[in-house]
C-alpha cells in the first residue's frame, strides 16, 4: 500500500515515514500542496496524509485541487493537524478530506486511522 505524506515539517515527514514504513507502507513525500499535486500527477497512491498549514499551497487548497481533478474521487485523504479546533477540521472536510489525525500522533493510532479509510 502506498501513502503520500504532505507536510512542510521535515520532522513530521520523517516520523511518518518511520511509522508507516515499519507498518509495511510505501511512503511518498511532499513538502507542500503543490508538490503533493505534482506527485499525484505521476504516482498512484492508496491514501494521502496532509498537513494543513503549509507554504505555497496549504492543505485545504491541496485537497480541493485533488478532488477537482476528477480522477481522485475515491482517494482517502487524511488531514494531519495539531488544530483541535473544530473549524480547521470542518474546512478540511468541506474541501473533501476523508478524516483526520491529531498531531502529535501515536503510531498505533496513525495506522488504525488509516485502516478506517482504506480497504
Amino acid at each position: 500500500m502506498r501513502v503520500l505524506t504532505v507536510d512542510d515539517s521535515r520532522t513530521i515527514l520523517a516520523m511518518l515515514h518511520h511509522t508507516l514504513s515499519n507498518a509495511g507502507f510505501e511512503v511518498l513525500q511532499a513538502e507542500d500542496g503543490q508538490q503533493g499535486l505534482d506527485v499525484l500527477k505521476n504516482e498512484s497512491v492508496d491514501v494521502v496524509i496532509t498537513d494543513i498549514n503549509m507554504p505555497v499551497m496549504d492543505g485545504i487548497e491541496f485537497i480541493k485541487q485533488v478532488r477537482a481533478s476528477g480522477v481522485h474521487n475515491a482517494l482517502p485523504i487524511l488531514i494531519l493537524t495539531t488544530e483541535t479546533s473544530q473549524d480547521k477540521r470542518d474546512q478540511g472536510r468541506a474541501a473533501g478530506g476523508t478524516g483526520w489525525i491529531v498531531k502529535p500522533f501515536d503510531p498505533e493510532k496513525l495506522i488504525s486511522v488509516i485502516h478506517r479509510v482504506v480497504h
Binding site: M1, T19, N22, A23, G24, F25, D106, P107, E108, I111
Partner: peptide, 12 residues
C-alpha cells in the same frame, strides 16, 4: 507520547 513504532498486520 513515547514514540514506539509498532508492527501492525495490515491489508496489503
Amino acid at each position: 507520547i513515547d514514540f514506539v513504532p509498532v508492527m501492525v498486520n495490515i491489508a496489503g
